[in-house]
């Protein structure tokens, strides 16, 4: 790695930290500006109890001071504080619990999607306008346009309720099969289409024609030249997709009762559980920033023509 690349990476990491800081700041103040609070319920507590709660969690201090304390705790101790709703639990533990499941689910789904997507895309490109290409295109178009709550509900009704092959809740390993499929279908279809069009583009390039003319074998052309070069757009998509998919999908988690981070994120907002909102937002933002960075660096690995500046 040359010094130019290193400098680029350092610059990008600093920019990433800045981005996360901006996210923290905006979220913090917007969150406090929204009406309602963590201790407001259908049944009002006495003013004394309300005041005691606010003092306990430092919510009686001015927002700017709370913001300062929060930043300091994160930077110096990596301390996200206690959840205000799930009493007795720390935000970091709740996030770790949820992320474990979401990560497992997301990584498998992303892996499945990438693998099948690239293979199907390549097959479709190589058999352009043949029956198999048409079939693949019809299926992927369907999956790209079907929202996950429909696919999820269909899979659930068929495999869980009718056939009873798989459980309808994500508390066991078998229960994760359907959510993984639901999560994987859209990116798989999308990757298939990306790979196909990119591959077609590459196959029309002069260097492929040259290779063919030189008598290089078909397999070598595809795996040695065409596939590698056609994966650049797929990579662009893979990074953010991975970040998105591992940070949990509320819809899929809801439909299949999967204990992931997506449900936590949404419920923390309705509950006004301030430390939970901050914690999940920061983790989500950090992941997306990191994945983008990794993607950019991977470009260089795949295509030496790209310079990192």
């Amino acid at each position: 790695m040359n010094s130019k690349t290193l400098l680029y990476i350092v610059k990008r990491v600093l920019l990433a930290l800045f981005t996360v800081w901006v996210v923290i700041t905006i979220t913090f103040f917007v969150m406090h500006a929204v009406p309602g609070g963590p201790f407001v319920g259908e049944k009002a507590t006495t003013p004394a109890v309300q005041a005691a709660m606010e003092a306990k969690y430092g919510l009686d201090k001015p927002p700017l001071e709370q913001y300062g304390t929060y930043l300091k705790d994160i930077v110096t101790k990596f301390d996200f504080g206690p959840s205000l709703k799930q009493r007795g639990r720390m935000v970091i533990d709740i996030i770790a619990d949820g992320m474990k499941t979401s990560m497992k689910l997301g990584l498998i789904a992303a892996g499945v999607a990438a693998l099948i997507g690239i293979v199907l895309g390549a097959v479709a490109a190589l058999r352009r306008n043949k029956l198999i290409d048409r079939v693949i295109m019809v299926i992927t178009t369907a999956f790209v346009s079907m929202p996950s709550f429909i696919i999820g509900a269909l899979l659930l009704a068929l495999f869980s309720v009718q056939l009873r092959w798989l459980p309808a809740n994500g508390s066991t390993a078998a229960g994760l099969v359907l959510p993984i499929i639901t999560l994987a279908l859209y990116p798989m279809a999308y990757i298939t289409r990306l790979t196909r069009s990119s591959m077609l583009d590459v196959l029309g390039q002069d260097y492929i024609r040259t290779a063919k003319a030189k008598g290089v074998s078909g397999a070598r052309i595809i795996f040695g030249h065409a596939l590698k070069n056609s994966l650049i757009p797929v990579l662009t998509y893979l990074g953010p997709m991975l970040a998105y998919i591992v940070t949990g999908s509320l819809v899929v988690e809801q439909i299949f009762a999967v204990p992931g981070i997506g449900r936590q994120f949404v419920s923390s907002i309705t509950n006004r559980d301030y430390p939970m909102i901050m914690g999940t937002t920061i983790i989500l933002a950090a992941l997306i920033v990191i994945m983008n960075l990794v993607t950019d660096i991977l470009y260089k690995v795949v295509d030496p023509r790209i310079t990192l500046e």
Partner: peptide, 13 residues
């Protein structure tokens, strides 16, 4: 589970 439809699926099966 907080999803009524999910609960129903698990009851049905």
């Amino acid at each position: 589970s907080d999803d009524a439809n999910n609960q129903l699926s698990n009851f049905k099966n």
